[in-house]
Amino acid sequence: MRAGVTPLVEVEDLHVHFGAARAVDGASVHVLPGEVLALVGESGSGKTTLIRAIQGLQKPTSGTIRVDGAGGSSPGKVQTIFNPSVQMVFQDPTGALNPRQTIYEIVAEGLRIKGEAGGEAEQVWAALSRAGLRPPERFFPMYPHEVSGGQRQRVVIAGAMVMEPRLLLADEPVASLDASIRGEILALMRRLVDETGLAILVVTHDLGLAWNIADRVAVMYLGRIVETGPTEQILEDPRHPYTRALLSVVPETREMEQQILTGEIPDPARIPPGCRFHPRCPLLQSGILPETISSRCPTDDPGPTPLEAVSAAACWAVTSGAGPSALWASPG
């Protein structure tokens, strides 16, 4: 953890179980003020469940979520309290907006719930303007279906920003938008961080998005963070074999040799023993790992990355100091 900076949100050893399915299974992650953290993973990795738990939309089974230093003080105690300084942006802006409300009502809704009487119109005006919907008064009487998809996402952002949050949780904020719109929305998010000191935790499967706006990246696999670190390090010199495989199949990285993993992410009700990634791990399958390491993978759990970690990978090959770069230099 950076010295002297108190994290805005700390999620420690969070578990969210749905019956036998362990959607989030011991994830720990923190976000500092004024940074963008990209939570990267495939569908089924539990990343959406994790941020829904932070927002209080999903009850955790166990673990601690501390927002702004407040929240559960004793680890293991379930805490979900609504906190207006945490707001959410959704993947599908069309579904996130009530079709029977005008854009003015949508943006003002948070203020009305909070019970802020004075200056409502001014605040709505400012929020729309800051979200790039100008002139704002033109949008006041419109209904969501009367504006474009990109504008709808801006309305969602304005509706969240009007609450003056310190942390914005964004769930695939551009996945449902046209490619040419994407960049503008991402630029808006980055600008809000740079100008207002907001922090953003963005959930995505898109590594290019992380490259575009994130300070740090956390990679999630089967309910846990398996690797975390500064964006440049994770995307240019990944250490965990899963991160490495993910990166190799991004179409833009054609220099890398592709490592297409077989099969799909396992059912969270049947998490493999030992390292949860070992049945699909190309590093283990390549046979280049020394016996001392490869014998541990199927039986010993390398455990989650620690909460405070600035840079960590939950992989026996990495933690046992085998030197990942040396290992990757001769894959297969």
């Binding site: 939309l57 996130a96 948070g110 969602v156 509706g159």
Partner: peptide, 12 residues
């Protein structure tokens, strides 16, 4: 619908 989730996250 997602807008109900949105309202919840606004504290409704």
């Amino acid at each position: 619908r997602l807008f109900v989730d949105r309202a919840r996250s606004l504290g409704a």
